[in-house]
Every structure is written in C-alpha cells, then in structure tokens.
Design a protein around this nucleic acid. Structure first.
Length: 247
DNA sequence: GTCGCCAGCCACACCGCATA
DNA sequence: TATGCGGTGTGGCTGGCGAC
C-alpha cells in the first residue's frame, strides 16, 4: 500500500483499479485464496498474455503480491487493507443497470449476496447479521469505536477462539468493513478472520463456488443457539425465494 | 475531419518446469 | 529425453480521446 502519495501518485494508484479486467482480478482475489495467472485470465475472459501484463502492473503497484512456485505464479491480494479497499470501493460503485442474463449468473449473485468471504472474513447477509448479533449480545461495543468487550473475550474462548494470539498480531482485533451488497458494515479484523475460520472448522459453514459460503443445517442451529440468529434469515437464498439486494 | 498518442487486447514465439 | 503445459515478452491491431 502506498501512503503519502501526491496527486499524481494517487491518480496512478487509482488507475490501477480503473480498468474492468484489473478490477475483476481484485474482486476474484477477495476470496482470500492465491490464484495462478492462468486461472485469473480465464476468470476475466482475457488472454494469458493480457492477464500477465495486468498482473505485473498490479504487483508493481502494491495491490497484489506474487509467489512463484515452479512454473506457476501464484497471485493474492497484498494485504487485508487492499481487500478492505476493494470491498469498500465495490460498495460505493453504482448498481449495474443490466440485471444478470442467465439463471446461473443470477444464482451466483444470490449466493454471494447471501454469504461470502471478504478476503478472510465473512461478508454478505450472513456477515452483517453476525456483526449485528455480536453487538446485540455485547460481544462487541461501539460506544467508543468498535471494540471487543470482556464478554466477547469469554464468548470467543467458549467457541474455541482464544483472543491472546490475535492480540499478538499487528491487525486490529475488530474493525467495520462496509459490505457491498448489504451497504452496511460486517465484521473484519483479526476476530472476523478467526471466526470465519472457526465456523469452517466446526462445519457451521462450508465453501461454495468461488467466494460463496453456505451455512449448514448444523450451523444454522448453532448460530441460533449461540447468537440468537433467526434460522429463517439464515436459510439459503433459493429456499427463501427472494433475489439478491444487488446482483 | 485528421492526426498523433495512449491503453488495452490478442496472436505468436519462446522459456522454464513437471511428468511420462 | 521428449512432450505438454503454464507463464512471459513482443509486435501489431483497435478504439478512445485530445489537439489542431
């Protein structure tokens, strides 16, 4: 990430994202995984040489990081700050005028709006519901800025997420991250990432296609019991019969 | 309207690595 | 060692945009 940039530097940095192909790469990489250059090229629908050129620019600009293993070039977002930047820019972007053209595209959009990963934490309807429930239950408090409470430390320990190792990292423990589908904050930071991983470990959630996350029946029961979340709100989009707030 | 510049894209050739 | 595959670099084409 670049700090203290002058106008020219800021314009150059913004120009990195002002291209549909490069922006598409960054959105794809929000799933937190490392992609090969070829995978990103196919996902964006451009030639490998085109993708290679764009990726070189994004890496040089500090938005992406690369790791070469043999003949593969693995690409990921440079850091969680980049993920937050991309997610918030997406949240402020105008809604596309054209609705999804195919049933598959509509289903994928609905799945992402329902629950997905935002780099390494939960986003979408699930992420926002979780964020709100944690505030209601006193796990989080925002009277002086978003913070983890003593009750929250105990609750996390009960869930199998010790907080002390998280404090040792340089990341903020808890942080708001503006959700681009719900237009409301979901939980990011070290605790957000730890909860996302713990839910997967416990089998409360499973990874779907791409960035999509699904809540399992056991997960719905557990989230209802531990956080008071309404299981009806956690039902997958198909069974609720309503489309996404935004495709 | 024309010209020049720039950015994005692709086809192609080439290189390096993994595998049979 | 030969072959196939993933990734890179280069050259050319195209479209957008500003200057004249």
């Amino acid at each position: 990430m670049t700090t203290g940039a002058d106008g020219r530097g800021l314009a150059g940095f913004a120009a990195l994202l002002a291209d549909p192909t490069r922006a598409g790469f960054c959105l794809a990489l929000l799933d937190g995984r490392a992609w090969t250059a070829g995978e990103l090229a196919r996902a964006a629908g451009v030639a490998a040489s085109t993708a290679s050129d764009h990726l070189t620019r994004l890496v040089a600009g500090g938005l992406l990081a690369e790791e070469r293993q043999g003949r593969h070039r693995y690409i990921r977002l440079a850091d969680p700050g980049v993920a937050q930047l991309v997610e918030e820019l997406a949240a402020r972007a105008p809604t596309p005028a054209t609705p999804p053209r195919t049933l598959r595209a509509a289903s994928e959009g609905a799945a992402l709006a329902y629950a997905r990963t935002c780099y390494d934490h939960l986003a979408g309807r699930l992420g926002v519901l979780l964020h709100d429930a944690l505030l209601t239950r006193g796990v989080l408090d925002r009277s002086g800025g978003l913070a983890l409470t003593g009750t929250g430390v105990t609750w996390l320990a009960g869930l199998g997420v010790p907080v002390e190792p998280l404090r040792a990292t340089r990341r903020p423990l808890v942080r708001d991250c503006l959700d681009w589908t719900e237009r409301r904050p979901h939980l990011a930071g070290a605790v957000g990432a730890a909860l996302c991983g713990r839910f997967l470990d416990l089998g409360w959630t499973v990874r779907g296609t791409g960035r999509a996350i699904r809540v399992t029946p056991a997960g719905r029961d557990a989230l209802a019991e531990t956080l008071g979340l309404d299981p009806a709100l956690l039902a997958p989009p198909a069974s609720r019969g309503s489309g996404p707030a935004r495709a």
